[in-house]
Design a protein around this nucleic acid. Structure first.
Lengths: 406, 406
DNA sequence: ATGCTTAATCCAAGCATTAAATCTAATGCT
DNA sequence: AGCATTAGATTTAATGCTTGGATTAAGCAT
């Protein structure tokens, strides 16, 4: 008698569905009562409470004791809350010139961070992998997080990646160096691993937390040294089998563009050209700078200052950028284009000029042009966001960290 | 006592899931046994049989009696089969010059078809809507299908459409004529209605039944009078908020292209130009034709014949098409580009030449170039495929036709 | 203390599924 | 013909999970 090993009800499928439903609700609310969860999930009180009990058992949630001076009339409700420290995710921006790692809790709050420069002259796959490991280790230590409690990691690389996170080999030495087997390496540690192109991660960041959160379709245009776009259409990231969607190699064939150079590169280069041409008026802000001191922010600052040479550069950039945007919109009909990357904080004026040019180039309505609010952090924010997303989506497949902590 | 109105088990959610699972299985198998369904769904025999009973009750399936000379050793299995005639879907290709409607059963077999030309000179929204109704009525009659048994309809239009099937108003008189409120009109009849851009439907056709069935990412390039692409990336159609993805307005800005004209238009125009230039040698196939008789098939035929002038046109087309493909691939990293539309049957040689040019224009691997096997039927096949897909996806929300038939 | 209000808990009822035993229909061998 | 063999169909009891109502618990106001 008793203990017959029977699974019943399709091996607990329904139970699982409801558990996930309650956890989902917990994820986007802070503390909550059973009654609130009932309304959101459509389940009975008994069921909600039993699901909560299971989630507490599993370590995903915790019951939080009421603050004494609570209020209300009837019997006070028990309060539940997602355990933000049930696990952590690591985000990595493994860029060409530096490796940056952050550690976030399940609520997305950053609890640790570390960064190391990489000298492109002495860069190789093995060192890059080792330095990334070190950076992560230190970021974890800075947040006091035990590596065993990491559930997932996402790594952004300036390379194409396939769905498994590998970069197509052979044809591109650079990719092999930028993505030295990250996917296999971290999976070996038992972490759920995603390796993704940096522009695609920027798009993830914008979708979840930035200017893309209210747009069905948009492009996040990474615009530093080279253009690269992360494209979200109908709420889904468009990546392609090898993650090459949005790589913008096609700019070579666009009239008035012809190269993949980005805003940062062009502003600097054209700004220096103007400085060296000697045609600048005597009172030019740009003319007063050393050539080496001229970079994109300097040029935009000078233009804001009314400097004729810098204004000319910005106008030229506006035309160029408008064409890039016209191509993206013409192919994908996006509602919004978000200019991201290190230059994002200084392109406000450029975007206003670009919008005017763009208006004449596309079928109305023209896509809205906005600057990302993440600045140089777009990729790392996207990485942690994506890692977190993976945990959320497959939550019950993860085992949250040991609960002994408290 | 008894009969307490209790819903239990989350209002039959699990039951519904399993019912759908069995129906799914039925949909892509012909006759099948309970045992087969058990293996596919992971359910028990009892459950499968009870789900089948419900599906038969609902009218989706039917039990088919064994043919006497069956075989095997043990007790012969009961056989089930999807009722292909449980309902019908209507596909419509409402093109600029003609309206074509087909009626298909649930297995996708065409059971009725009707077509009417439209004179673009005397075209207006009201007449177009009325003619479409007539065409559908006649197509239904030709297949002996009672309109009440239609479950869904999909209409392809040469216009952009939003997710509800409406074309953005105002800015484009042409669209309002091409899509005279189809969505609202057919929904009023109680049919599940989808109105979609023609190139997007071609992509649906290729994905489900054509050259796209084994590609994760591809573009169906409708190439008659104007280029238009239906884009599938990672298995999902990329359409944009207003269905404008793949509209290829960006061709205006591509070096060596500059206009949206398609292969059909260009082959005809350039072929006539060559004919009129008078530079053709005496034995030219093209030169022997009347100017009015020169169209795309004629040009391709002449080129296959070795006609110098026609070969020159094909070479020029190859260069142009390669640039179009390079732009699509550069933006979306597709595995394959499928040239569709009326010209598809004759572009084999052109594609071979194009592939050579394209090889030098894109990052390897270059997308594979293939001709659609649907010819002028790409849009209508896509329409019925899509309508069928909608029925399949939401099957239990539909009420199949009356069963009294047999 | 006595209600009043709102949650939590308990419990019987019921649905849907599974597992195991039993039944049924065919084949093939003797 | 009789009987074992095979394999699917049915039946039955057990199980898991959810529901809905009854009961109890916890605060607050009077």
């Amino acid at each position: 008698m008793s203990r017959a090993p029977q699974s019943g009800s399709s091996s607990g499928l329904l139970r699982r569905i409801n558990t996930v439903g309650v956890l989902e609700f917990a994820w986007d609310h802070d503390v909550f009562t059973a009654t609130e969860a009932m309304e959101a999930t459509g389940l009975t009180r008994s069921t909600v409470i039993s699901r909560c009990a299971e989630l507490i058992e599993l370590g995903w949630m915790r019951e939080v004791e009421r603050v004494p001076e609570a209020l209300g009339k009837g019997r006070p409700a028990r309060l539940y809350r997602l355990r933000a420290d049930a696990g952590y995710v690591v985000g990595v921006d493994a860029g060409q010139h530096r490796v940056l790692a952050t550690v976030c809790d399940l609520r997305g709050a950053e609890v640790g961070r570390q960064e190391h420069p990489i000298d492109p002259e002495h860069d190789n796959a093995a060192d890059r992998l080792a330095l990334t490991d070190t950076t992560i280790e230190e970021a974890l230590a800075s947040g006091g997080v035990d590596p065993a409690r990491v559930l997932a990691i996402a790594v952004g690389v300036p390379a194409q990646t396939d769905v498994d996170g590998a970069s197509p080999p052979g044809q591109n030495e650079f990719w092999a160096r930028m993505n030295p087997g990250f996917a296999a390496h971290f999976r070996e540690r038992g972490w759920h691993t995603t390796v993704e192109n940096d522009a695609n991660l920027a798009a993830h960041a914008e979708r979840a937390l930035g200017a893309g959160h209210d747009a069905r379709s948009f492009a996040a245009l990474l615009s530093g040294e080279r253009f690269g776009a992360g494209i979200v259409v109908d709420g889904a990231l468009v990546r392609g089998s090898y993650g090459g969607a949005g790589e913008m190699r096609l700019l070579d064939y666009v009239v008035g563009v012809g190269s993949p150079h980005g805003i940062g590169y062009l502003a600097r280069t054209w700004g220096r050209e103007a400085r060296e041409s000697g045609d600048l008026p005597a009172d030019s802000t740009l003319g007063a700078l050393a050539v080496d001191a001229i970079d994109a922010p300097a040029v935009f600052a000078a233009a804001a200052d009314g400097d004729v040479g810098a204004v000319a550069v910005v106008d030229r950039l506006a035309d160029r950028l408008a064409r890039v945007c016209a191509v993206i919109d013409g192919m994908l009909d996006v509602d919004r284009i978000i200019v991201a990357g290190g230059v994002a904080p200084v392109v406000g004026d450029l975007l206003r000029r670009t919008a005017v040019v763009l208006e004449g180039m596309v079928h109305p309505p023209a896509p809205e042009l906005v600057a990302s609010s993440f600045g140089a952090d777009a990729v790392i924010v996207g990485a942690s966001t994506l890692a977190l997303d993976r945990v959320r989506t497959g939550a019950l497949d993860f085992v949250p960290g040991s609960v002994e902590g408290e």
